[in-house]
Amino acid sequence: MTELSDIPESVSGRIGQTQYEETGEFPVEQGYIWTTCASVQNGNPLYWDAAAAAEITGGQIAPPTMLSVWFRPHHWSPGRTEAAVPLQAHFDLKEDLELPEAIISENTITFHDPVRIGDVITSRQVLRSISDPKTTKLGTGRFWVLDVEYVNQDGTLVGVESYTAFGYVRGDV
């Protein structure tokens, strides 16, 4: 059976603290909305017909489930030497808890004000909890819950994502 180290105080001290407040690298835009709708064959007129969007939602909006799209970093940009990763607090936990693999096992998204074309979205990450060691069919590790809050350029809350992840060591090592 894999033995896990105790949770360092430097990690448990992050619980409840705001981390990684980041502003999206580009404003909410039509192209990704169409690509996303195309990927799932979503013909909702709100995303294809500006007149319908104006009448129903007061202007063009993004599909609510695209919330996380707007803060995911480019895979590369000038001057960057390492690939940036979204949910950095999640990857920090993998490294600091020495759990090289991780999956997201549950995800709750709460949708507040609509996200509109041209909005610039800022996200902030808050670690809510870390479990005792658990063993699943994937391996031995810990579950953690991480919230990501999203606000627009006016500071208005547009959504909250809550992720439950399982970080683990594969098999019985």
């Binding site: 799932v40 909702n44 609510p64 489930t65």
Partner: peptide, 20 residues
């Protein structure tokens, strides 16, 4: 999530608005 959204709003029509 996008597949779930498409499935639900195909059923509700465009005035259906996801809450959670």
């Amino acid at each position: 999530a996008a597949w779930f959204e498409r499935y639900i709003t195909d059923w509700t029509g465009p005035k259906g608005r996801l809450g959670r």
